[in-house]
Design a binder for these strands. Structure first.
Lengths: 164, 164
DNA sequence: TAGAACGTTTAGAATATATTAAAAGTTCTA
DNA sequence: TAGAACTTTTAATATATTCTAAACGTTCTA
């Protein structure tokens, strides 16, 4: 009877971490985050490993990933030498930050590829068939247009504000 | 000298498919799509397996995934019994459709979880400590708020239009 | 109607990712 | 400063994913 709450928490941790996993976040990191999100008080590595039944080293690795994303923070608990963590409850900001960062990374990569291709096509003009070159030029132009549209949007759109 | 164009295409297929992979799309599906996107004419399974140096079965599996997403379509080539495919050049629509579909799926799942949790907390009220219940209620309420905010936005925002 | 020309399925091999257990490193306390 | 109480790293193992090769099924052609 006493563990009814614990059971519900288990369920939520499970359900929510599936969601996290479907967003491409490590499943265990998702579980840890939700565990901390739901917890009344900060938790130590030992408590987390106990609740999720995973090894301490694995908790350590994942909690540091969460820290890097500012999804959790270490808190001081007087009288204890352990590290305690609590969740940053502003989940949306965390997710949006991650998304924005990821998108930016990817788009920078594309930029390089497209420009490199344009250069190469320029150099090729007299060595290849006219149709081939024309086709490639068209396609690259199309790709570039898409790139510009999306990255222009990304630059302006402060997703965070939309959601707050 | 003749293969300069092929080399550039290889590069683009590689670069672009890394991008696709970073979006959670199968790497090979990404390669196939870009190959078809850049191609002057529709390609057969054999041509694709040859260009990407992968087995025919694997081309088959991935091309059908692309077909399901409406990213490529089968085209008729007279005089040949083979299946030929060409890319849907409206890449943004494809990506946005996929994103929207994926997000909707995930959000429906969350809805269930949150409502289930609310029900359970209701049933628990007299069997658990006041603080515990209060904490959980607060957290679930917070989660619900986020859910509503995001899903409301999703419902209204026609990403496609923004990008067109 | 045999068999050639395809595309699809499948069982298993190769590769990559997630996870553990234990060793190593660090910091605090007596 | 020894050693206890922690966290982090690492090497190995378990699990999941990607990919192939070959068998299979279908449709077309002669």
């Amino acid at each position: 009877m006493l563990d009814t709450v614990d059971k519900l928490i288990d369920e939520l941790v499970d359900g929510g971490s599936n969601f996290a996993a479907s967003l491409g976040i490590s499943r265990v990191a998702g579980q840890l985050y939700i565990l901390l999100f739901l917890s009344e008080k900060p938790l130590s590595l030992d408590e987390m490993m106990e609740k999720l039944k995973i090894s301490k080293g694995y908790v350590s690795i994942n909690i540091r990933a969460l820290e890097r994303w500012q999804a959790v923070r270490k808190v001081w608990v007087k009288g204890s030498r352990k590290d305690y963590y609590e969740a940053n409850l502003d989940t949306i900001s965390i997710v949006v930050n991650q998304l924005e960062y990821g998108l930016r990374q990817r788009f920078e990569g594309l930029d390089l590829i497209i420009n490199r291709a344009k250069g190469k096509i320029g150099q090729m003009k007299n060595t290849q068939s006219k149709e081939q070159i024309q086709n490639l030029e068209d396609k690259i132009k199309k790709a570039e247009k898409m790139y510009n549209r999306v990255s222009g949007l990304l630059g302006k759109l402060d997703l965070l504000k939309l959601l707050k």
